[in-house]
Design a protein around this nucleic acid. Sequence first.
DNA 1: CTGAAAGCGCTTACAG
DNA 2: CTGAAAGCGCTTACAG
Lengths: 327, 327
Amino acid sequence: MREDVSLATVAARAGVSVSTVSRIVNGEMRRASAATVARVLDAIEAVGYRPNPVGRALQRGQSQLVAMIAANLDNPAMATIASSTEAALREAGYVMILCDTHDRPELQDEYLHAMRAQMVRGYVLVAAVPSAGLSELSASGAPAVFVTRRNPTGSGPFVGIDDRAAGARAADYFADLGRRAPAVVFPRLGSSASRDRVSGFLDRLRERGWSDEAIIRADGEGQSHLQIGYEAGARIFGGSRTPDAILCVSDQIAYGVNRRALEHGLKIPGDCDLVSIDGTPLNQWVAPWLKSIEIPYAVYGVEIVAGLQMIWRGESFGERLLPCKFD
Amino acid sequence: MREDVSLATVAARAGVSVSTVSRIVNGEMRRASAATVARVLDAIEAVGYRPNPVGRALQRGQSQLVAMIAANLDNPAMATIASSTEAALREAGYVMILCDTHDRPELQDEYLHAMRAQMVRGYVLVAAVPSAGLSELSASGAPAVFVTRRNPTGSGPFVGIDDRAAGARAADYFADLGRRAPAVVFPRLGSSASRDRVSGFLDRLRERGWSDEAIIRADGEGQSHLQIGYEAGARIFGGSRTPDAILCVSDQIAYGVNRRALEHGLKIPGDCDLVSIDGTPLNQWVAPWLKSIEIPYAVYGVEIVAGLQMIWRGESFGERLLPCKFD
DNA sequence: CTGAAAGCGCTTACAG
DNA sequence: CTGAAAGCGCTTACAG
């Protein structure tokens, strides 16, 4: 377990050149005699050699590092995505660098540059925001998969859910239940995902006979979905019409709305149903009042890595929409 | 923004040697004439040169990467620690690699080896478990700071809270409130932190007149603190004596206990007070019934990085116990 | 079947 | 004040 075991160490011990050891380490067994291979393998074993990824990266122009650039790790959904991606990358022999952009384009660009300097093998962009560096990245053709939000500066491999369908499902649920006054709560400056969930919800309600004016819409400002829900809740419950069913585009928004509902003395469910889209496992423990369309964040990791591997192999990977649970 | 801007590119453009450029890039301004410095700086600017960290790491035997090796990212507390550490490292010019060990010693060792191969500049070990590789690391004197759990294989820089004091604080709170039947819930196979919280609680209760038998103790098995609380709750609420105050050593344990309490038709608070140690911000939104001693996870990052920097400078860094809020 | 050599981008004694 | 050279650990044509 010494620090100074390099190809040279192994080569000396086996009595061959570093070239030969290098080839064998890289699996080119058929270019050396069986005897040599055996001797080298023994030497590797004996000194406990492991290839130095830094030397290798410099030579190959490519490291074993994969950059995950995420908008906000404090969001439990992103934490789960990060965790599952980390596990899948490790299985595949890669190491994950984690970058939190706090949804700020300049930070995202800073990281994008830093990661290119690190010669990362690929990029996982979770809820990426539009930025100059991102456009460059897209243009450069570097291996990248977008998660949750589609590439805001063009197209690209995507892992997520069918957001419009999720919204529509909530609409059907409310309609089938006989609710009359549906509402939807979303971030003012939302992602494509948010918007799709909302429009899927609205379109389906229209199909099922609602007029536009009959559907209550409320948004909230800022980063924090908790705050967004709380703020929008004030307008919803303080308004002239109180809804009997609310779709929140995320769990955290629902938490905020619920707290406001409690302040207004409303019973949830009962006076008003709450449905959200996320379905983090914590809900069953602390928010049993919440019905949620469950996004399978825990399997995002394997899908993301599968996507990267397809790209590395030169195959094309368009998008992978994962099925949600709702019961 | 080309890929091929190296020291050589800059040197050629400025009409000097790479040595000179390298020195200037590294801030050794006084070893070159003012004219040369100006010319080189111009060239750097003109071609948009950024030092390649991989070449640099190989030469220096040390990268700009810092490894965070955490036991379980799905735990919100660890996610917040990871997030704040990432931010602090970025400010300091480092990049964070994230490794999730799932509390498994073999995985921890695998990562420890992989990170050494990456020539990481330092290690942040969050809730590390005992393992052969960890002993090696401690022995090697590599820069490492332990977080949440102290080094289980010896000593080492530590960032955390005064766990015994936190437990004692809960005891005082219950005693001052006039509670008569206190209980404490903890993981069966807990960390040093868990144990200290429990013993701090018990010792203070004893000081304040409780007999050992009067204090209800319940543990639960497994990884998931939610499950631990739920399981222990069954024994607590199904037992002969029902407590009127419970300390849970983590928020998630409290969530589990609360759910069980609800199933038993108990009102929380009212029939029974619940206090936990963690104080994640989510509590105010989804668990207003929970009183929690708040650990400042969001500032762990800056303390951890400050600790690493002290170690890098050769100064000694023993431990940093951060103050908790409880009101 | 095998090895010497060049080179990935960088740093750092050493010589001038 | 400045540069040529060696070397960090590796890979890969190329020559034999």
